[in-house]
C-alpha cells in the first residue's frame, strides 16, 4: 500500500461518507454542549470537498489536502471551518510536493495539522476540544513510525485508534474552549463533537488504505 494522490482522494471521499453517515450523531453531540450545527457543517463542508475533487484530479497528496483546506474554510461556516482548514493546510505544507507519504512523513503531517489547530484555536490538551483527539494520534503515529519496521498502514491504524480513544476520553472533561465552555461544569458527561469528527477523519484514512 502506498499513500499517494489516489489514496488521498479516496481518504477525502471516505471522510465525506463518514460525515454523512454520522451527521445526526455529531448534531446530537453538539446539541448537548454547543450550537448543534457541527454535523451539518461537516457534512456540507466535505460534500463541497467531494465536488471540488470531482473537478480535477490533484497530482499529489499535498495538493489534495490544500484543496480540502480551502474548501472547508469557505464552506463549513462554524469554528470547524478555520480549524480543520488550517489543519489540512499545515499538513499539505508539511507533505510538500511528495508523490507518496512514508510513515515518518504521515506522523509529521499529523503533527503539523495538530499544531495548526492549536495555533488557530489556542486550545491545550484537556480543554475538551479536537486537540484531545489529535494529540494522542500524533504521539501514536510518531511512536509507530519510529519503530522503523512499521508499514504505513500500521501507522494509520495507530493514529486512528489513538484519536478514537482520545475522543472517548473527552466525555468526563469540563470544556475550557469554544462554545461548550460557556456551559462550565454542565459540559462534563458529553463527548466533544470536534474530537469525535477528528476521529472519524483519521479512521477514514485507514479505510482508504485498506
Amino acid at each position: 500500500m502506498v499513500l499517494d494522490a489516489a489514496w488521498a482522494v479516496k481518504w477525502l471521499n471516505l471522510c465525506a461518507e463518514a460525515m454523512a453517515e454520522h451527521r445526526v450523531e455529531l448534531i446530537e453531540l453538539d446539541r448537548a454542549i454547543g450550537d448543534s450545527d457541527h454535523g451539518e457543517n461537516m457534512d456540507r463542508g466535505f460534500q463541497a470537498v467531494v465536488a471540488k475533487l470531482g473537478e480535477g484530479t490533484p497530482e499529489t497528496p499535498g495538493a489534495a489536502l490544500k484543496l480540502t483546506a480551502m474548501t472547508l474554510m469557505s464552506k463549513v461556516g462554524g469554528a470547524a471551518g478555520p480549524l480543520y482548514g488550517t489543519a489540512f493546510l499545515r499538513a499539505a505544507t508539511s507533505l510538500g510536493d511528495s508523490a507518496e507519504i512514508d510513515p515518518g512523513a504521515w506522523a509529521e503531517a499529523l503533527a503539523a495539522a495538530r499544531d495548526g489547530i492549536v495555533a488557530r484555536g489556542k486550545a491545550e490538551p484537556g480543554d475538551k476540544t479536537m486537540v484531545d483527539a489529535w494529540t494522542p494520534a500524533v504521539d501514536a503515529a510518531r511512536a509507530a513510525a519510529d519503530g522503523g519496521s512499521a508499514d504505513v498502514l500500521a501507522v494509520l491504524v495507530a493514529a486512528a485508534e489513538a484519536a478514537e480513544a482520545g475522543a472517548v476520553a473527552t466525555d468526563p472533561l469540563v470544556a475550557r474552549k469554544g462554545r461548550a465552555s460557556y456551559l462550565g461544569e454542565r459540559s462534563a458527561g458529553h463527548r466533544d463533537p470536534g474530537a469525535a469528527s477528528s476521529a472519524l477523519i483519521l479512521r477514514a484514512a485507514v479505510g482508504a488504505a485498506a
Binding site: D37, N41, M73, S74, K75, G77, G78, G81, P82, G85
Partner: peptide, 12 residues
C-alpha cells in the same frame, strides 16, 4: 454570514 446565507463565517 456564509456564502449561502447561513449563520457562520466564510473565508471566501
Amino acid at each position: 454570514g456564509t456564502g449561502d446565507g447561513r449563520i457562520g463565517t466564510s473565508l471566501e
